[in-house]
Design a protein around this nucleic acid. Structure first.
Lengths: 238, 238
DNA sequence: GTAATAGTGTCTTTTAGACAGTATCGA
DNA sequence: TCGATACTGTCTAAAAGACACTATTAC
């Protein structure tokens, strides 16, 4: 029976890694923590939040990922998407072959309770471009690259980036965020047409965002459109 | 050190599952095999090709998936895509918690050496709609549903379905296949425009497919477009 | 000839792209 | 007033959608 430990030596280590992103000051940031001096491996290196999948502790990978994210960010109901499972000896060369299931998480900055550092973990939010230049623990460099690529791809066709913004936001805010993720300028008029036509946003009647200019209409996301795919990429062909 | 067996009892079973698809007689078929009477679990049920991930046998999940597919289909260089990792006690209730990393494979019918049955495994290609009605082993019902959904989604925006067709094929063949996957009729003229404009196909000069009608130009796939995304879904908006 | 599929042309409607023009706030 | 951002409108170009039309084979 596989239930016994007869096969134990044939089983891999398993773990989860989460790439938690926020959008702050018009930049995408990712959460890293510094591994302690006394870690078994990859001492003192920065790392994405992660967790070994210990079956005496967790029922499934999702729970382990959830735990690891909450431990570092204190966000309880995260927007979390599994995007790939890596495997091989290379992930953690000093141990046995490891399976690493990875998630990215699009978080609302205002809901992230943890700032820089906190008790046992030294955590920090790092500009994504800068984080890419770090030497990270385990295979987290490739994890981070793929995670960010998936987030950017989602911005092309889906409404996923909305989860970066506050509950109530303006069309301008969504446009600037989208423009950042797809790395292209977007025509304001065209963007409004595209958005408003689909019905993905609900106007907050009477609520306006004030500034040193004409007040802007606030909207909330229409959850019915979760998983919605635009029939066309926001990026123009050519 | 995690390398020892001290943590062995905390490690999950790991395995891979492959949903191998072919396109035959204008239908999508999936390969199932019948589990033997003497299997430890799920005796006599149909199952997708699968394999435990034994770290003394495989270096990574990809190799295990490759092995499991070749064992059942004899296809050596498959088009294989990882799409999700399931986990939990429910996958194999009588054993320990299992992690199941899943792949779908789009195969060329002509390259699949195995037909119905073969030696130690009783295998068969089942119409996808019919297979969905089976009671499958492990969590293979949900695996199959998600696998086929991913293949269909790929048909909306990418050139992936081309891997179902013979190396040389006509535009009509590609249109009928695409139409099947997206479950919508496609205008022939429009479809040609879309395809030819991108340059994803290369004309086989002088080669024509003959039938009881005007001969049709044969094309091959331009591999440069592997991973290509159409800026717009093949499905019309509304 | 007919049936069948291949392939082209063309007209209409829809969408995209660019950008001008007006609106409303704070200072 | 001005600067800034919020919108709305409009013209043009491109793409989609529908479908008529011609082409070439087997029979």
């Amino acid at each position: 029976m596989y239930k016994t430990d007869a096969y134990a030596h044939t089983r891999p280590n398993a773990g989860v890694t989460i790439a938690p992103f926020i959008y702050k000051d018009e930049k995408i940031k990712v959460l890293l923590y510094k591994r302690s001096e006394t870690s078994e491996v990859y001492q003192n290196l920065y790392s994405l939040p992660n967790r070994f999948f210990d079956i005496t502790e967790f029922e499934d990978l999702q729970s382990a990922a959830h735990f690891a994210l909450k431990e570092k960010t204190n966000v309880d109901i995260p927007h979390m998407t599994q995007f790939h499972t890596f495997s091989g000896q290379y992930i953690d060369p000093t141990r046995i072959i490891t399976i690493n299931t990875c998630y990215y998480s699009i978080l609302r900055e205002e809901e992230v309770a943890v700032g820089e550092e906190k008790g046992e973990f030294e955590t920090k939010w790092v500009d994504i471009e800068e984080a890419m230049t770090y030497e990270l623990a385990f295979n987290h460099n490739e994890v981070l690259v793929m995670a960010y690529q998936k987030v950017k791809a989602a911005a092309e066709y889906t409404t996923a980036p909305i989860h970066f913004l506050p509950k109530e936001f303006t069309i301008r805010e969504l446009r600037i965020l989208t423009s950042l993720l797809i790395d292209q300028p977007l025509d304001d008029s065209r963007f409004r047409q595209r958005i408003e036509k689909t019905g993905i946003l609900i106007k907050c009647e009477g609520k306006m965002k004030k500034g040193a200019n004409r007040p802007a209409q606030l909207f909330i996301y229409n959850d019915d459109y979760e998983g919605f795919f635009y029939p066309r990429s926001v990026t123009a062909p050519k």
